[in-house]
Design a protein around this nucleic acid. Sequence first.
DNA 1: CGATGTGTTGACCGGGTTCAAACAATGTGG
DNA 2: CCACATTGTTTGAACCCGGTCAACACATCG
Lengths: 239, 239
Amino acid sequence: MAPDTFRTDSNAADRIAAELKLIERLVPVTRRTVHAGDVLYRAGQPFATIYIVNTGLCKIVQTAADGREQVTGVHFRGDWLGFDGLADARYTCEAVAMDTGDLWCVPYAALLDAAAGHPELLQLLHRAMSRQHGRDREALLALCTLGADARVADFLRAWAQALSDRGLRTDQITLRMTRAEIGNCLGLTLETVSRALSRLARGDLIRFDDGGARRDIRIPHVGALAEFVQKSAGAALAH
Amino acid sequence: MAPDTFRTDSNAADRIAAELKLIERLVPVTRRTVHAGDVLYRAGQPFATIYIVNTGLCKIVQTAADGREQVTGVHFRGDWLGFDGLADARYTCEAVAMDTGDLWCVPYAALLDAAAGHPELLQLLHRAMSRQHGRDREALLALCTLGADARVADFLRAWAQALSDRGLRTDQITLRMTRAEIGNCLGLTLETVSRALSRLARGDLIRFDDGGARRDIRIPHVGALAEFVQKSAGAALAH
DNA sequence: CGATGTGTTGACCGGGTTCAAACAATGTGG
DNA sequence: CCACATTGTTTGAACCCGGTCAACACATCG
């Protein structure tokens, strides 16, 4: 029974650190340093290894047969990438580094081997996949139910949450993405993202600290962002 | 190595049948019959078992804290439900039967036990999760990049594909969903769905066979639907 | 310095929502 | 059997959010 052989700590940062330590100890990982734009894997390539983000961040790009492209997720320290390749032994999307950083390359076969003697490892894998599925569903929900401003606000809120989960400061986040990239994540155009950010700034939900560059976003109070999302969603719900 | 202990058959129907047989043989499953509207599990309930659809179909409903609801997927024979509960030992969404049918209830712990001696089982689990992740990403892509008509067309195409994957006729599908439910799946209002269906029927991409009820949809040529999606997506891509 | 990439803002347009009305199918009770 | 309510669908008309197109501001970098 014992479904919590590996304890879920209330502190997500501790959980992530512990997970990484466990992996490092039990599985033969190889490191890989990447820079912004580097491609970890492409759709169609044979699947063999799962990547775990150690530092930096990566985006997942899904491409349709007809050329439509969509960023389906951004991943931070402790996130696992490459699950998509499990089903057919080929990756079905593209993983791209968004900044310099380093990843751990975990051969899937080696992971399974190690997991045979250490059930905690298997649990780690399953939980990572489960969390991913949860994020996917939340993204779908946000996309379908939120207006543009709320969607951008929710994006920032989620980003801040991800940072906070990793023990980093959450009041000052620097998106290493252009407005167009943010838009692609949210199903919006770059102009709409720009306007939404301006409106959020006007309402003092966010601030632009770095003079004219407008890339560093300060979040005075994360809770206010969440409230804003709730409120604007509630307004939509009240027919 | 050997990442394909369990062979992926080119015929999806065979694959599903073989998977079910394997599960049945190696894991102590219990059956459960359900009717339309029955809830398999709710968000917040302690996680213990994974469900596999044998007959009938289920929908997954994601609910936000503020009450927004979103159907994030519809699942058919051979699909696994309940992965969302793995991460925190609690389900995070709701699974609801959409028609009478029966499910296999697989205790997660028992599955792991059995998998210890039968690696194929683990592979089955992982592939099911991976396929789910792939569907999630495809849904996101469709939602972000397709207009209303194409979205509805793609929904029908995917439904037909799911049936065909299971060896069922694909030219005559009866959606056991109202327009409102379809709309909720696609992030559209019921009126828009109704109009889209009318337009598709006008273009003879679909037909309403059952007099005035308009619930049974005939798809004269599935390929035409796919073409329509491609075409209308391509038009949007060409700036 | 111009050149380029990125961000902002305005004006306009269109697809999808909203609101409303009418109709069809089904069920219920008298 | 019919009158009536209920639920689901269709269609029309007005509105509005977000997309599109365009102009401009402001960085960085050769």
